[in-house]
Nucleic acid binder design. Structure first.
Lengths: 338, 338
DNA sequence: CAATGTCGAGGAAACGTTTACCGGATTCTA
DNA sequence: TAGAATCCGGTAAACGTTTCCTCGACATTG
């Protein structure tokens, strides 16, 4: 059943049917009513392929993530979908699973399906692979790492705000030896978190102790390993901040193995506030980087770019703040026992 | 850049270009080589909308889930995508967030984008809402609840196998008072799990004690509440099985609050084996219902149906077994202290 | 050697929309 | 009241493919 069928039954032209369905205001109310009636009766719905073919608008946004099973992403995907539904967009979800080949395939898929824009929410994938998209002037939005050129927007994360809050929270609980487990330092975002931590420490008159900065890898196993290293030192820290929640979960898990009660003997703070931070025992105090908000900003960036008629010089920039959310994994420092 | 451009440059007809790209074997090797050369040079890739419009094949499968942030789903989505990529399919991911209206929208989206098949992996959504899909003879695949009609496949979960294993495991650890926290019993799958539990108990000569069967709701909070009820009884259980992992996590969490050490004083077993079962402390012993395998089966069901030329009488049926995976949340029953 | 069959490439129709353009009717203006 | 302007619906071209059909070239057969 197609638009012609509707046209015939409503005794109008296909043009009028099309205009009615697309709510072009100039069509006569009587005609429109007739058309809608037939549409309802037959349960007609337009063919998106045909639509897209002629109009050039697919109403699809691409969303590239690292991997869906990483707890960081489901909430983003969910929020992105919610907004897409509200705006009558479809979403083409693609994951790179940390494989450049898969990234290439992702780009290809986006191109073939003619998405109108792509949000790249991966952790550090080589940008070169996106050349195909950039070349075709598809609007893109990045987190932190987008170059300042037309059609490319950026969401800047304000790591410092939340991390400072966290450090000050620990200081208020009389912690003085605070360790930090970083992410993979080749990741810009991981580096930024570490820098923010050190800066926050200095701000309250504590000099960062290199022995208390351990390089992790943003996995639970990394957290486990890092705690192992930390425990072996004398004068070990009374609090540990982690570059992401998974690391913090690893730390808590390993602390349990060592018989170190969290938070009584050791305070732990994560970063990201993934949903599962609420599920573990004790519920994790962490720095929230709202995934919902991130998705919202990404979508908005894309939509704005698509709807803009004249391209801007530089692509827009958005800022996402972070803040501390208190749960149960931090407490007063134990009396110093060195 | 379109197929005509390629045709012109390769000095063949568009028909030949199309045939070449689609690897129709009758095209002359020389011509094919010419065509491919031009394709590579120009970086041409076909327009999927145009393709779909004329061929009627969109190469899209729909995937309807309850909500992406439910830990049960990310792995399914990931696996589904992996297989889709291998088969050159795209996936239209949609979530109902437990809202019939959203389900309706989902169906509509599937219809508009002309998906070739839909996997419905939600927990108990009214089937009536899928009428639109069924009516248009879109191949569907359900878990457990699909009616036996053409174009509708079913994946039957063998709940009994894993649950029996779990019960026998507990029995071997000398547990005699084993509680069960169910899911919402209006859900067929929850009911089936409970029944399997009771049956397994009888099998080893234990009569299910109704006082030890608590209705939960498949959430962490439900698990917390249920443990509260259980603890208040005298002669409380030494082991608890849960209808899903989230419930088990709630139980463990609340046990911690009560100061009941898991597994020393209380053994806990979950169901599903979501990824996060490995992240909690202690790592959760649980009955695995492989999400990867589930996704694989669902995709296969759809693909088989699409590729079949003559529709079968009944739609096919697949079976997914469950089995126990041992981690750290179970131990020998404590000496009876009643 | 003529007739028939086989093979593969090209021409052109078709898929279901949107939209530029046209033209008739109506309203407005002088 | 005639001409201009405005409005709005219809006609048909276009979007980029796939695929049916035709047709020429060549091989095979009697």
């Amino acid at each position: 059943m197609d638009i012609r069928e509707i046209a015939k039954r409503a005794k109008v032209s296909t043009a009028t049917v099309s205009r009615t369905i697309n709510r072009v205001p100039t069509v006569d109310r009587q005609l429109a009513k007739r058309v809608w009636k037939v549409v309802e009766e037959l349960g007609y719905y337009p063919n998106t392929q045909a639509r897209a073919l002629v109009s050039g608008k697919t109403r699809i946004f691409g969303l590239i993530v690292s991997e869906i099973i990483n707890p960081f992403f489901p909430e983003i995907v969910q929020s992105f979908e919610d907004i897409a539904v509200q705006n009558n967009y479809e979403i083409l979800l693609t994951s790179t699973v940390h494989d450049p080949k898969r990234m290439e395939i992702s780009v290809r898929r986006m191109l073939e399906r003619r998405v109108e824009g792509v949000a790249i929410l991966t952790f550090g994938m080589e940008e070169a692979l996106l050349e195909g998209l950039r070349f075709r002037k598809v609007p893109l939005v990045f987190v932190d790492v987008g170059p300042p050129v037309p059609h490319i927007s950026n969401i800047k994360i304000n790591y410092a705000s939340g991390i400072r809050e966290a450090v000050q929270h620990l200081a208020a609980l009389r912690h003085e030896r605070i360790a930090f487990i970083t992410g993979p330092l080749k990741l810009k975002s991981a580096k930024a978190r570490k820098d923010a931590f050190e800066e926050s420490l200095r701000e309250i008159g504590i000099d960062p102790d290199p022995a208390l900065i351990i390089e992790g890898d943003h996995t639970m196993e990394g957290g486990i390993r890092a705690l192992g290293q930390l425990v072996r030192r004398k004068g070990d820290p009374t609090a540990i901040m982690c570059s992401n929640d998974l690391t913090a979960i690893g730390v808590i898990r390993e602390a349990y193995e060592y018989g170190i009660p969290v938070p009584r003997e050791l305070s732990v703070i994560g970063f990201d506030d993934v949903r599962l931070a609420q599920f573990i025992t004790p519920p994790l105090t962490t720095v929230r980087m709202s995934q919902t908000e991130l998705a919202r900003l990404a979508f908005k960036a894309l939509l704005t770019d698509v709807e803009r008629e004249t391209p801007t010089e530089h692509g827009s920039e958005y800022v996402l703040d972070t803040d501390l959310v208190l749960r149960k994994s931090t407490a007063l420092a134990r009396a110093s026992n060195q």
